[in-house]
Design a protein around this nucleic acid. Structure first.
Lengths: 218, 218
DNA sequence: TTTATTTGTTAGGCTAGTCTAACTTTTTAA
DNA sequence: TTAAAAAGTTAGACTAGCCTAACAAATAAA
């Protein structure tokens, strides 16, 4: 398999692919925080190994092989996060950095065991799907809370942002996966939304928050 | 801290120190499976960082700082092994290679949590002591089974060899940590020993086995 | 005590992953 | 439609970790 560095490039490529079909060297360089010559060099190596399609001056694409390799890393990352939360008792805001290290462990047994021990979970602690060993997962069709009409009843299912800062904000507001929310008014001026959930009635969430919450309408 | 490679050199130096006070470049090279120029180069770097004492043509010694750094890696390794066995249900013969990867994870939280979750164990699954966060551990004074007189009663406390092959042999013979053994005759010719334990009465262990079992006389 | 063997060192080279400086190609916008 | 900006490339250099070939120092053995 790949070195840790190459695994990180593959992962970055996978996430960039979710936004656009064709990836620029510059974008990859920014995500990886390396210079353009560095990314240029690396891209040639990834191409040589069949993980990406690359031609001079053309945008990049992950090959099928590359996508599969990337999914294995995402799988290891998300299984690790779930294990850290469910089995080891970490908070959902603590696990990203640890999983960032665990995802590069080669011993597949470790992850298969985590998976088994947790009963083959389908999502990580932030609601992101955990790919199976073939890199497949079902992509649920959630809406952003900001897209839901007034007076709807929804359940929080996933987060579009899993940064520590956002997670700590959600902790403070008592919001977690599974929380049932009723939407009231949307303020036209700043698109903030008044909602009720759990012990919070008539509390206001900014659009920056409602844009980061993925919900299922019930 | 150190790179994974440097951590592995430190660990090797720590184990070599248990055999002799002064380590030769050649020995370190053999353990690390690298050429003499490679180890020579590396030794200069480890010296520059204050982990070892090194002078041209003189044998190597770990400094106090180096020993402490090495102990942290040993700690991570042994905590990992214990966690894999006790929490994740792996067999004691499966955990070495996984722990070999886990020991390089920087996130100290992970190991502190393992430690806490297991109730601060003092030994790993093979009976080797787990150092605390300062690198201290108590070195129990066990005997080799081969050194115990005939007709003694002993308990298996640790292994001097934790290779998969030896562990699989012990599995097959129903021997584990805590097994109470009564010694009968020692055969003068090949130093093999007849013993009884659990459901095995009058079974013979070769000297190569009795030389690998650390026991406490009761 | 001198020779042979082992141990350690130097010199020079390779890959992976990174950089800066300078240049070329492509895209965008005036 | 051409000039400015952005994107991509090349050349050359650096560190970490490894190598082989050749040589020097220390140790062991005759």
């Amino acid at each position: 398999m790949a070195t840790i560095t190459k695994e990180n490039y593959l992962k970055a490529l996978y996430f960039l692919h979710q936004k656009s079909d064709a990836i620029s060297l510059t974008d990859l360089g920014k995500t990886m925080e390396v210079s353009k010559p560095t990314v240029n060099d690396m891209v040639k190596k990834l191409h040589d190994r069949g993980w990406i399609k690359y031609e001079k001056y053309k945008p990049l694409k992950l090959t099928d092989k590359g996508r599969k390799a990337a999914m294995q890393i995402v799988r290891k990352h998300r299984l690790s996060e779930m294990f850290l939360v469910q089995v080891m008792g970490f908070g959902w805001e603590e696990v990203h950095d640890i999983a960032e290290e665990l995802e590069h462990i080669k011993a597949d047994k470790l992850f298969d065991r985590m998976d088994e021990l947790m009963g083959f979970p389908s999502v990580d602690p932030h609601g992101s799907p955990i790919p199976d060993k073939n890199g497949n997962y079902n992509k649920p069709n959630y809406k952003l809370l900001s897209q839901v009409p007034e007076n709807s009843k929804v359940v929080v299912r996933a987060l579009r942002d899993s940064s520590t800062e956002f997670l700590l904000y959600l902790n403070k507001k008592g919001l977690q996966l599974g929380t049932e929310i009723v939407t009231h008014q949307i303020e036209p001026f700043d698109k903030s939304i008044t909602v009720s959930y759990a012990s919070y009635s008539e509390t206001t969430l900014s659009s920056s928050v409602s844009n980061r919450l993925l919900v299922e309408v019930v």
